[in-house]
Structures are given as C-alpha cells and as structure tokens.
Simulated scan of single mutants.
Amino acid sequence: MVIGPIVLILAAVPMIAGKVSPDGPLGPGSKQLDRPEQDWYDSTRVAGSAFLTGGLVWLAAAMLLPGHFDTLRQEHETIAFIGATAVAVATVVSTMYVEGGSDTW
C-alpha cells in the first residue's frame, strides 16, 4: 500500500530540484515550447511540489489508517480513495498553474 505514494514522492523530487529538462523523456522539446524555457522549470517545480504534497498525504493515510476499519476492503478502498484524490488535486493545481500562467504561486 505504500509503493504508490513512495513512487510519487520520488518522482516529485527531481521536478522540485529543476532536473527535469524540456528536452528529456518527459518534456516536449525546447523547440516545441510556446514560452521561455524558464517557464518550463518554474512549472515543473510547482507540479513537483503539488505531487510531493499529494504523495505525503497519501503516504500518511497508508501508514496511519490501517487497523481503523471493520474490514480490510474498507481500509484499502479508503486509502485508495485518499491517494486518488491527492493525485487528482495535485494534477489540477499544476494544470491551473501552467494553463493560467499564474505568477502568484
């Protein structure tokens, strides 16, 4: 139950550190960017922070909630719901930043 949030946290760290290049396997390529390359790094930092927060929430749920439910199925479904919600919120936050071009983040 903790593999998903750990993978999410580990994926967020290079994003926050600015190590995900637009020319790398996750990027569209420098020539495809409609904005300056610095915007790419700013956006990936915001996305990385959002995914790190979501991963930590999911990890906390996976570690703190077991044993608090009547059945194992309830436990798994609740933790999965919290994880899916955390990832969805992180995705929305990062998309709003990129699409909105907000400088206030």
Score class of each variant (00 low, 15 high):
G55V: 04
P25H: 01
V93Q: 04
W58F: 13
L72K: 15
L64E: 09
P5R: 06
G83K: 02
F51E: 01
M15P: 06
P22V: 04
G4E: 09
M1I: 12
G101P: 09
S30T: 14
I16D: 03
G100N: 12
L72I: 13
K31Y: 05
G54K: 06
S21G: 00
V7M: 15
T91G: 15
T78F: 09
G100P: 11
M15L: 12
G18W: 02
I82H: 09
A12V: 03
E99D: 12
V46S: 01
G48E: 05
A17L: 15
A84D: 14
D39M: 05
A61E: 00
D23L: 02
E99Q: 13
M1G: 07
T91C: 13
V98N: 09
W58C: 00
I82C: 09
V87C: 10
P36K: 09
L52Y: 01
V7A: 15
G55Y: 03
A12R: 00
V89Q: 05
A61F: 04
V87R: 02
V98I: 14
K31M: 05
T44E: 05
W58R: 00
T78M: 15
A84R: 13
T53K: 07
Q32W: 01
A11Y: 08
Q74S: 14
L8N: 02
E75K: 09
P14H: 06
